[in-house]
Design a protein around this nucleic acid. Sequence first.
RNA 1: CGGGGAUUGGCGCAGUGGUAGCGCGCACGGUUCGGGUCCGUGAGGCCGUGAGUUCGAAUCUCACAUCCCCGACCA
Length: 416
Amino acid sequence: MRYSQLFPKTIKQAPAGAESVNHQLLVRAGFIDQLMAGSWTLLPLGFRVISKINDIIRGELNSTEAQEMLMPLLHPRDIWDQTGRWSDPDVKEIMYQFKDIRGKELGLSFTHEEIVMNLLGKYVRSYKDLPIKIYHFSTKFRNEPRAKSGILRGREFLMKDLYSAHVSKEDLQQYFQQVREAYLKIFNRMKLETRVVDASGGVFTEGFTQEFQVISPVGEDSILVCESCDFATNIEVSQVKEGEKCPRCGGKIKMVKAIEVGHIFTLGTKYSKNMGVFFLDEHGKKQDLWFGSYGIGVSRLVGVLVEKFHDEKGIVWPEAVAPFKVHLVGLDLDNKEVMERAEKVYKQLQAEGVEVLFDDKEGVSAGEKFADADLIGIPYRVVVSKRTEEQLEVKKRNEKTTAFVTVEELLKQLSH
RNA sequence: CGGGGAUUGGCGCAGUGGUAGCGCGCACGGUUCGGGUCCGUGAGGCCGUGAGUUCGAAUCUCACAUCCCCGACCA
């Protein structure tokens, strides 16, 4: 991508009122744009980050034999009535519900348990049809009383939700553990350290759930963590208190703020029973399905990553989720020879499959280009200028030092 | 939904009753050329909306809307 073509360009000043770091930096660097409170456009750069995150999630979930699909966001009331959730006062607070022009009652999706169970009811007959693991990436709508903190809490956001149906509690629990491990890999790949905490299921279930929390001062949840091991628990359900000893290792327990990035639920047979969905076991006997659901807040993750990975100059993306791998900065581009060299490097990198953002603008000072590169936060900054001659000047965003290398050496460095 | 703050060119802001200004950005010319150079010229605004007060309102009053923050509530 040529920077001269990139929409939109960076801006110097954060919008009035933007206080949280992710709000300021993501807007300034041109990753997101606000439509209204809690509602954001993912601009081209932001969308590239989303795609990277989704690819990571997709890869790990597919290796649990889960299958990707896509479900509608506009839901008819009658399916939601089957579990009684349409009229649940807690649900009514967060679900957008309305009538269309014919008077048909519809809701905008804030989750898909009912829709998935309805789908399963059409296709599942036998124990041989199970287990089923299906997921999608889609927009979720939640009528939040208060949208806040940039992209961290919106009224409309992107989420990956996975649903699984099983013949038995044991099989569900086994898959639940498998998803738990997959989630840890997913967050690990984007360099996010998460604590897994037992939590309450809110409007979803009274059953067992676990949250994946990233410790951060902008977090909205308070969790109790052990200073010595990875023990953690949500204060909503905790048996231990701050200052006490860790039940696992005896270390000291302290309270910290954290952001929830994932939540996994064992939902038991409640949905299956309420919606009359069952299967026949090997004795021809009707059995309820064991159901689970598993969510990751994808757009929230973008904000969390910025909160965790930034410095005073801008964002510092972990490589796995960066919108581009290389920010190629051309200086002295009004010099024809330098421009030709920069173009050549740009094309070489592209030919090798390296994702590169090429700052090809003429008449822009070096300082301004460097400031933009720091703000956008791409992992490798590669300079071509009069000074670099036949070499490239490489600097990693998260390091201070620069090095002069050949294109071949750079490609080698990028490949591992 | 309770409390607080904000609303003036694209963005950030100043302007306490007498015909609207600065910085950035943008356009043009020159200058500079490795950390947001400098100089000049120019385009761009029903001062959030509505109702009042006044000879006269960005400025005073009231209502509403929108955004941000703190609570209550939650991927």
